[in-house]
């Protein structure tokens, strides 16, 4: 079982590799990837350095080109695929049908992974991408229960990668337009959800307010931990209640499910967080490396250690974690 870790800059690449990642995934510093934040990601020069570091340590590097080009921006996505091919990446992570087609036709030998942003949640969908574009692996959206992942793994024509830890998208990825509805910038076209330029933190007499393009997302009493204003994690009024109508600030943590995920044949665990610090990458990678090693060495029965949970909870949104959709009761 492969541990796939995020890197938004060179120190994070080092942190991931030095702490035992089997693969790192990263993106170019433009809209071609789903974490297009200022100061994050790689130029043509820095990506070479990152790839060299990974290669020197005998690990793999995946390049995320997982947003959707439009007619006037297509060349940038084409160039990103060309860059990935020139670097001989171990795989490109792609969401858009046209980009997949270009990569498959131009560089048939270059492995293609289906991004979570393609929202493939069932067998027929995986078969579509496999038969059309020869994908080798698919990253599953965070909408499936463990049982559903198991059924899919039994028949899937490709390797499956699932999320193990990190910020939790609660909508089918790639099909969530909440951010563009409020800000104009979408994950699909701009590689951002709740873009920083639209975010305002406003201190009021008794509260801290978070706004997104002027829309009040949440109001925090003094002493209350304030979260980043993501639309699906705001507090809103529905009927006569003010509540986290969609989800609370929380992160996914599937550490307890690791033996089941391994047993049903999941090929890789993905850690979310290219926008997070190298320290985050180091700590999360370390915990998951220990967990996978404990599971795979088989000398003692696997049990997630309380210390691991403490470390992960400390890095989680709102300092709390959930099994998310893996657990039916969450749904």
């Amino acid at each position: 079982m492969e541990l796939v870790c995020p890197a938004g800059n060179f120190p994070s690449v080092k942190a991931a590799i030095d702490n035992g990642a089997d693969a790192v995934y990263l993106g170019l510093n433009n809209k071609t990837n789903a974490r297009f934040f200022a100061g994050l990601n790689f130029s043509d020069y820095t990506i070479e350095k990152a790839v060299s570091y990974v290669r020197d340590h005998g690990r793999k590097v995946f390049i995320a080109i997982n947003t959707f080009p439009q007619a006037d921006t297509w060349r940038q996505w084409q160039a990103a695929v060309d860059t990935g091919a020139a670097l001989e990446a171990d795989a490109l992570i792609i969401a858009d049908v046209g980009v997949l087609r270009y990569a498959a036709e131009r560089y048939p030998q270059l492995p293609r992974h289906l991004s979570v942003q393609a929202s493939a949640t069932n067998l027929e969908s995986l078969q579509f991408y496999h038969s059309q574009f020869g994908i080798k692996r698919a990253v599953l959206p965070r909408v499936l229960s463990l049982k559903q992942v198991e059924r899919l793994a039994a028949k899937a024509p490709v390797e499956l990668e699932v999320f193990g830890f990190g910020s939790l998208c609660i909508m089918a990825e790639g099909r969530c337009y909440l951010s563009s509805y409020v800000t104009g910038d979408s994950p699909n076209n701009c590689g951002v959800c709740s873009p920083a330029h639209a975010v305002r933190w406003e201190e009021k007499d008794t509260a801290l307010e978070t706004r997104l393009n002027g829309v009040l997302i949440d109001r925090f009493a003094s002493g209350e931990a304030a979260g980043y204003p993501t639309l699906c994690k705001g507090r809103f009024q529905v009927g006569d209640q003010v509540l986290h109508a969609l989800e609370e600030p929380t992160s996914l943590n599937a550490l307890d499910l690791l033996p089941q995920l391994n047993a049903i044949g999941v090929s890789a665990i993905k850690i979310e967080g290219r926008q997070r610090s190298p320290a985050y990458v180091a700590k999360v990678t370390d915990v998951w490396r220990q967990a996978i090693d404990l599971l795979q060495n088989g000398e003692q029965q696997y049990q997630a250690q309380p210390r691991w949970h403490r470390v992960l909870a400390g890095l989680a949104e709102g300092s709390q974690t959930t099994l998310g959709a893996y657990s039916r009761s969450w749904q």
Binding site: V143, I170, A172, L243, L246
Partner: peptide
């Protein structure tokens, strides 16, 4: 109205404090 997102979670059930099942 524009369909903006779909989730594994049912928000109507969540509002009613009921599990989706």
């Amino acid at each position: 109205r524009l369909p903006l997102a779909h989730s594994a979670r049912c928000y109507t059930a969540r509002y009613a404090n009921l599990p989706k099942d």
